[in-house]
Structure formats: structure tokens, C-alpha cells
Computed example of a mutant assay.
Amino acid sequence: MNTLYTAEALSTGQGREGRVFTSDGTLDVAMTPPKELGGSGNGTNPEQLFAAGFAACFHSALQLVARTQKVKVENSTVGGRVHFGQLEAGGYQLAVELEVIIPDMPHEQAQALADAAHQVCPYSNATRGNIEVTVLVSDD
């Protein structure tokens, strides 16, 4: 891999109970487990950060694919959901759902763009074969 950019972040405290911040200071947030996992929910958590990062990265890949194919995409959105679950054999696992909305585009064309974006998105490539990632195209 030819590295084009490196992001750096540091977690302090006790991981899910602490802070995380980037080396350039643009991100500095309190980390707290969600209420569903016994926490106060008064901060963010790794799953929210992962959902936000995956959604933004996938949206960028979608825009890249559209430009490459010379397709006009306006007012598109990508929503990310990260599911945190326990495995039967022990340990924990993540699963991701990405919901793509491209207004005023036929469903089949939007799905083809989303499928192409899933092939070039760095998050998709990093998770492929490791966790379940579902890409859904919605018309609303």
C-alpha cells in the first residue's frame, strides 16, 4: 500500500470510559458506554464513531463512483448503523448497515452506484470478509 495520509488518535482513561482525541486536536470527545451496555450514555462510544466514519467514507466513495461514471448525484445521504453483539462462543462482534438515499434516481441505478462504491470504499475493503456489511438503497 502506498500511504497517502495517516490519522492519529489517542485513547486515555479506560477505553470506553475516558477520552479520545486526535493528534491535530480536531477531535476531542468523552467516551462513555451507551445506556444499553450499562453506561451513562453521556458521551460517544466506539460504535458511534465507527458508524460516522464508515458513513462519511462510503458517501465519499459513492460521490467518486458517480463522478467517474459521469452520473449526477445531488442531495444523497448515507446513514450508518453499527450493531454490537455477543457471539455464542464468547467475545463480541460488529455488524454494519449502510443506508443509501439518492433522491430522483431510479432504484436500480442507485443500487448499482452503491454496489460500485462498496468495492472502492476503504472501510468496505477493510471490513470485507471480517464482519457483515449490508448496503441498502432506500427510496425515501
Rank of each mutant, 00 (worst) to 15 (best):
M1P: 04
L4N: 05
Y5H: 14
L10Y: 08
G13A: 10
G13L: 14
G13V: 10
G15W: 06
R16F: 02
E17R: 07
G18Q: 07
V20D: 00
T22V: 11
T22A: 10
T22K: 05
S23D: 06
T26G: 01
L27F: 12
D28K: 15
T32A: 15
K35Y: 03
K35P: 01
L37A: 12
G38F: 07
S40N: 11
G41C: 08
P46S: 05
P46V: 10
E47P: 01
Q48I: 02
F50C: 11
A51N: 04
A51Q: 02
G53V: 02
F54Q: 02
C57W: 09
H59M: 12
A61K: 01
V65K: 02
V65S: 01
V65D: 04
R67C: 01
T68A: 06
T68F: 06
Q69H: 11
V73Q: 00
V73T: 06
V73I: 13
E74Q: 07
S76W: 02
V78G: 00
V78Y: 00
V82I: 08
G85F: 05
A89R: 15
G90H: 05
G91I: 13
Q93I: 06
A95G: 12
I101S: 06
I101N: 09
I102V: 14
I102D: 02
D104R: 13
E108S: 09
E108Q: 15
Q111E: 10
Q111W: 08
V120S: 08
V120Y: 03
P122W: 05
Y123Q: 11
T127R: 06
T127Y: 06
G129F: 05
N130E: 06
N130C: 11
N130Q: 12
I131Y: 13
V133C: 12
T134W: 05
V135C: 05
L136R: 11
L136I: 14
V137D: 03
S138N: 03
D140C: 15
D140V: 15
